[in-house]
Design a protein around this nucleic acid. Structure first.
Lengths: 236, 236
DNA sequence: TAAAAAAAATGTTTTTCAGCATACTTTATA
DNA sequence: TATAAAGTATGCTGAAAAACATTTTTTTTA
């Protein structure tokens, strides 16, 4: 069983951004220090406020990155899919924002490569190409974060929910039917992605369904009229 | 007059992060390509949606970085002070978030060093130490952006305004009296920093003044009871 | 499979905040 | 300096969304 899992997940050398730019020595160094770890559904991977020990690469499953805000109310910052990496921001920031600012939780059963903080820091300082690829990644993340800020603060509930549904579609894609979003989230998670409370997520999803924009079957959400979702998202 | 301005501003070699890690060749390359430009009060420095041509280092004056959101409503993302640099995120991000996502405007008369995008990209790819310092900077920026997200989305008006006042104090410091925040902003800018409309910024500032938390004299804001501001900010 | 727990649905109430109108004050400009 | 324009102050109203309560449905677990 352990063997089977090991076969299921991809190797680190299949992630070109990490692998191709390294020298032979650096590859050996990375191989010697990387570990694969499994997390059960809903298991906490890292905790807000904690000291970052590893950078992680998700290779199987889905992860949510979220912050606990006012009165413990949680705000999902990002949702990850395989081949995406995380936990590196906390390692590299110095000053106020060193350390995990977020919680990471396995949304379903996950396999994750873990690279010790010291190892990834060494590699970045030795290898300008690798460092540059992290610059590119962080620059894109920051752009996304700023864009999301305006979405969440300025749009009304319908606009925020439409945005979230489109985001989920972009991130996780559609099932074989070409319409059902390929992730099943609790209404509460949809709410936490959209900066609203659960009641309003439920209510607004129902309204969208009534209006024929989506079809809802339990946690399955089918996008019927994507154009309208875009329109609702644009108008706020 | 031109001579005088040139003397007033610091040299690029006084910014260690840029200078100390460069080789002699790289220093020469940078020196040969860097230019100093002056902007008048309220002048636009770069525009949302535009192609990034330069990375910039503010050496005199204050700059606001803002996004135009739903219905043109503007949201100030950051406020800069001398020695801070900007415009680099747009250069390095690839994919969706390449290009300026924000506007930058001289909040008062400014002097700015401009490094062509190609030059800074060359330097980063050649110099792992420089690239790593950008990784650190971007990681901190992203942490700040995520923290701000929760502030702006979850806190109530009083909490958001308190947060903004404390942020301004941290960023720009206090005047000789040890209480007056060393930046004079229009109520509209305070509102755009705090995700609220101008009326509510005015109203809430008045309330804070009535409660003896701050004292307001035109655009001068004096912090009387910082502890209460922290408390209001924490509670949302 | 039954019982318990969690999640979803829905209606009602309350709070927060945006939008607007108006008056007053300060700043810019002819 | 007069006039216009911009910015500030304040009250009122209504829309949006949170909070709460209750019922129904689904999922988990014993």
């Amino acid at each position: 069983m352990v063997r089977k899992q090991a076969i299921e997940v991809i190797g680190i050398n299949e992630i070109p951004e990490f692998w191709n730019v390294l020298t032979e020595d650096q590859k050996a160094y990375l191989q010697a220090n990387i570990t694969l770890q499994h997390y059960k559904k809903n298991e906490l991977i890292h905790k807000e406020g904690g000291e970052p020990t590893h950078m992680m690469i998700l290779v199987r499953g889905k992860v949510k990155i979220y912050k606990s805000g006012v009165g413990g109310r949680s705000q999902i910052m990002r949702m990850l899919k395989p081949y995406e990496y995380f936990g590196y921001r906390a390692i590299f920031a110095h000053g106020n924002f060193h350390g995990y600012n977020t919680n990471a939780r396995a949304f379903e059963s996950c396999s994750i490569y873990k690279i010790p903080a010291t190892v990834i820091t060494d590699l970045l300082q030795q290898n300008a190409k690798l460092a540059f690829s992290f610059v590119q990644r962080l620059a894109a993340d920051l752009g996304a974060s700023d864009a999301r800020m305006v979405n969440l603060t300025q749009k009304h509930i319908r606009g925020r929910l439409a945005e979230t549904l489109l985001f989920l579609k972009e991130s996780y894609g559609l099932e074989a039917d070409g319409a059902t979003i390929n992730i099943y989230l609790a209404r509460e998670d949809i709410a936490n992605l959209s900066n609203m409370n659960t009641s309003n997520a439920i209510r607004t999803l129902s309204t969208f369904a009534t209006e024929g924009i989506i079809a809802v079957d339990g946690r399955k959400i089918k996008i019927i009229d994507e154009e309208r979702l875009h329109k609702i998202s644009r108008l706020g």
